[in-house]
Nucleic acid binder design. Structure first.
Length: 820
RNA sequence: GGGGCUAUAGCUCAGCCGGGAGAGCGUCCGCCUCACACGCGGGAGGUCAUGGGUUCGAGCCCCAUUGGUCCCACCA
């Protein structure tokens, strides 16, 4: 395996709405608001709550044997990381990457706070569509007597209208574009403009534009340089810009305005209309879009190196398909609004002179205003977006801007493992921040995993109550089983559903390994077995070594390609099927001490024990990344050479451990045993009833290998005796046959077997072979296959065909014999 | 509205480079065989969403359609 310098970085905590909301709700129980506490008091409470909450988690982890410690946890909001955040903010501001600008935000008039898009809940409400008309003016300013009609769900916002828009392609209105109209009630002259935003098909194809109170209108207003007239106070009452409606609540004003328009004859009609309205998810008040000054990061330049890094492969995304999503974000990037109207977070290091309102951005509060010399400043009340500090995580947690030795060693790190849902929020921002402030990428590879959902495919959430507490899972089935469940069962970047059954089956696997290890340790002598001489290894020993050797090669390759699920599936199959179900069973007879032991018996037992132990040890190493606890426990008990599996070397592929001959030999024997078992089950033969087995083959190699491994047919195939011969001499005519590519096994079941059933079975086999022969023949007689397919594929197919033909011959002969 | 992901056994999912369809769970049959019943042995079960195309050959590559799902934006 390649070496990694990945650092398990300290836990961090960031400004977050969720935290603030949580704390506010705990305060609510005591009947106080955050304003009652004041900013400092609030932060103090927040810290206390955080510490208690975090402390609970840590004490649980400690119970599970973790060495984590609250004091060692480091928070981004502590002094060290706060310093990095300020440093970055000031640097970017001075370079012109951070600016202040107007932006539409969601405002909750009841909570008197701005809320994030994520906190806006759209609910369908029954409302009305008010159809209104505005009088069109002649060029000299007099009323033309013509009107333009449109519909609105929010008539009160007309007080802030600064235009009316139509689609530029809409022929109905082409002549009107550029003309002016009189805004009723306010007596303001406003233009008729053309903008793509307007949907010709919808309503009358006319939209009134209120840049200060609608996000789309705000964008339209920017494009056409329209004035932004704010008509509302923060508590959603009409302000002085609303003329005679000033002081009214937004809904009162709506009523009054509709009434007044009606009296002027400008209200065309009212229709019922159901539409989605944004509400605050906590108090369900209808949110009010308002224009406020916010801080922004200018993205067009900063994003370039981040896009290039993935393009050139300097940063690798796994799976690669995530690049599509990545580019979709980089190519449609907009300036990043980084200010949040919260208290729990990094406060923006911008200070305003109390006297001249000059803005000073600095690491510390300035003492003297550079413009007027004033000495009193007020810091900007806003905090930074969670992701602003998170974006600095790869280096801020390592002590930057100090050039610490951790920073030198761990930056850039190798792999970031994260969920695909935060490609935009976190991954992209870490990447561009890395290039901007460190001049280098933060990591070389990003490995994306999916999200864990519940068994119905829903996202786990508190409100649904469908979350799974990992500690509960660990309590029931163990941390290893949970880890294995989360790593397997899906490909990188795909979501997975959580099933208790899967955890249980992985617990069963852990149990299987545990029992296998117990069996081996039971049999290990006081003195560790010694390395056997080459000749002391049986074909079975070499077979399992060869299998392990290939496993090491494949698993290593898979892991280096981050195919973690595929890799562990192979280890799982090897340990359970090959090692436990076959090798241990094969080796058992050699382990038990006999009465009159020869030196060969002792040496064979030693070889078996040595092989059992070495194969298990290496397999445990392959499994360790997935199931660290059980593998470490077994490893340290099983051997004394190394202190911990964590620092042991990763197994390596060895050319001298390729035992092709023995592998083929044992596979044939396995095939024979499976065939025997199969026949016995189909014939309903009780396991206690042994049967004589005849191996008929003309091939000397096959004869030799059956001779060497005949006792497996006795121990695993319930054979009373094994006879190896070249023809059917001395075998009952009605013996049951098992077809192998290079031999036929016969079992004289005459008195147990139903002849009809046996014929049925053979005819089924004949049918299967017919299909295979047909397929293989058609491939090999296809000229285009022969001319275009690679030579090795053709050879492979020819060999298969030969095997099928041989088997077919045997089956036909047996059927004929039985029919006699 | 924009952009992803996805469709394979009854269920949940693998399937690496295009070359005879796999696992776990469930189900059926037989077994408490001295590591393990959280187990052992054997079996049944698939038109790889649909329709085209490329190829000697498609679960895999291309196009279209339909269903599921997520992210972003949002309907005057």
């Amino acid at each position: 395996m390649q070496g990694y310098n990945t650092l398990w970085q300290p836990g961090t905590d960031h400004a977050s709405i969720a935290t603030e909301v949580k704390i506010i709700s705990t305060l609510k129980e005591e009947g106080i608001t955050k304003e009652d506490l004041g900013r400092d008091g609030f932060l103090e409470r927040a810290w206390a709550w955080k510490k208690e909450y975090g402390g609970r988690i840590i004490s649980q982890l400690k119970k599970l044997g973790s060495s984590c410690d609250w004091d060692r946890e480091r928070f981004t909001m502590d002094e060290g990381c706060n310093k990095a955040v300020n440093e970055v903010f000031v640097k970017m501001y001075n370079k012109g990457y951070i600016y202040k600008g107007a932006r539409m935000i969601n405002w909750c008039p009841v909570c008197n706070t701005s809320i994030s898009d994520a906190e806006v809940e759209y609910e369908e409400q029954k409302g009305h569509f008010w159809h209104i008309k505005y009088p069109i003016l002649n060029d000299d300013g007099s009323e033309s007597g013509e009107y333009i009609t449109f519909a609105t769900t929010r008539p009160e916002t007309m007080l802030g209208d600064t235009a009316v828009a139509v689609n530029p392609g809409d022929e109905r209105y082409t002549a009107l574009v550029g003309k002016y109209m009189m805004l009723p009630l306010m007596n303001r002259k406003i233009p008729i403009i053309a903008d793509e935003y307007v949907d010709m098909e919808f309503g009358t194809g006319v939209v009134k534009i209120t840049p200060a109170h609608d996000p789309n209108d705000f964008e339209v207003g920017k494009r056409h340089d329209l004035p932004v007239i704010n008509i509302m106070n923060d508590d959603a009452t009409i302000n002085e810009n609303g003329g005679k409606y000033a002081g009214m609540d937004r809904y009162e004003a709506r009523k009054a305005i509709v009434k007044d328009l009606d009296e002027l004859g400008l209200l065309v009609k009212i229709e019922d209309y159901a539409h989605n309205v944004g509400t605050h998810d906590r108090c369900h008040t209808t949110v009010e879009p308002l224009v406020k000054l916010q801080w922004f990061v200018k993205m067009d330049e900063l994003i370039k190196p981040a896009r290039r890094a993935v393009e050139t492969g300097e940063i690798k995304l796994v799976p690669e398909s995530m690049a599509k999503t990545y580019y979709n974000w980089t190519d449609n990037i907009r300036d990043w609004c980084i200010s949040r109207q919260l208290w729990w977070g990094h406060r923006i290091p911008a200070y305003y002179c109390d006297d001249c309102k000059e803005t000073v951005v600095a690491l510390k509060a300035p003492e003297k205003c550079p413009k007027c010399g004033g000495t009193h400043f007020t810091q900007d009340p806003d905090t930074l977006d969670t992701w602003f500090s998170s974006a600095l995580w790869p280096f801020s947690t390592l002590g930057w801007p100090e050039q610490t030795k951790e920073l030198k060693y761990f930056y850039p790190t190798d792999v970031l493992v994260t969920g695909y849902d935060i490609i935009f929020f976190w991954v992209i921002r870490m990447i561009f921040s890395g290039y901007a402030h460190m001049g280098d990428k933060p990591f070389k590879t990003v490995l994306f995993h999916g999200l864990v959902r519940d068994d119905k495919g829903r996202k786990m959430s508190k409100s649904l109550g469908n979350g799974i507490d990992p500690l509960e899972v660990i309590d029931k089935y163990g941390a290893d089983a949970l880890r294995l469940t989360l790593i397997t069962g899906n490909a990188p970047g795909n979501d997975m559903r959580f099933y208790w059954e899967r955890v249980e089956s992985n617990r069963n696997f852990a149990n299987k390994i545990w029992n296998a290890s117990r069996f081996i340790m039971m049999n290990l002598p006081e003195e560790a077995p010694s390395l056997p001489a080459e000749g002391e290894r049986t074909p079975a020993d070499k077979w399992i070594l060869s299998k392990l050797n290939n496993l090491v090669k494949e698993v290593t390759a898979n892991m280096e390609k981050y195919e973690l699920g595929v890799a562990v599936q192979k280890v799982y199959d090897f340990l359970w099927d090959e090692y436990c179900d076959w090798y241990i069973e094969m080796v058992k007879p050699r382990l038990y001490k006999k009465e009159n032991e020869t030196g060969d018996d002792v040496r064979s037992r030693n070889a078996a024990l040595y092989t059992l132990k070495e194969v298990l040890t290496d397999a445990l190493k392959l499994l360790h990344p997935y199931m660290p606890f059980i593998t470490e426990e077994i490893f340290t008990t099983l051997q004394d050479d190394e202190e911990s599996i964590m620092i042991s070397s990763w197994p390596e592929y060895r050319a001298d451990r390729e035992y092709a001959k023995e592998e083929a030999e044992i596979e044939t024997v396995k095939e024979a045993i499976r065939g025997i078992r199969n026949v016995r089950t189909q014939m309903n033969v009780v396991p206690s009833r042994k049967a004589e087995v005849y191996v008929v083959t003309e091939n000397d190699d096959v004869k030799a290998s059956f001779a060497e491994n005949e006792y497996f047919l006795k121990t695993l195939g319930s054979a009373s005796g094994v006879n190896i011969q070249s023809d059917k001499t001395g075998i009952a005519e009605d013996a049951v046959a098992v077809m192998l590519p290079h031999a036929v096994l016969y079992m004289p079941f005459s008195d147990l077997v139903d002849l009809e059933k046996e014929l049925e079975r053979l005819e089924k086999e004949e049918k299967r072979l017919e299909c295979e022969l047909k397929r293989s023949n058609s491939m090999l007689s296809n000229e285009r296959f022969l001319s275009k397919a690679p030579a090795e594929k053709i050879e492979e197919e020819k060999a298969k065909l030969a095997d099928y033909e041989k088997l077919m011959e045997q089956v036909k002969k047996q059927i004929a014999d039985l029919k006699k």
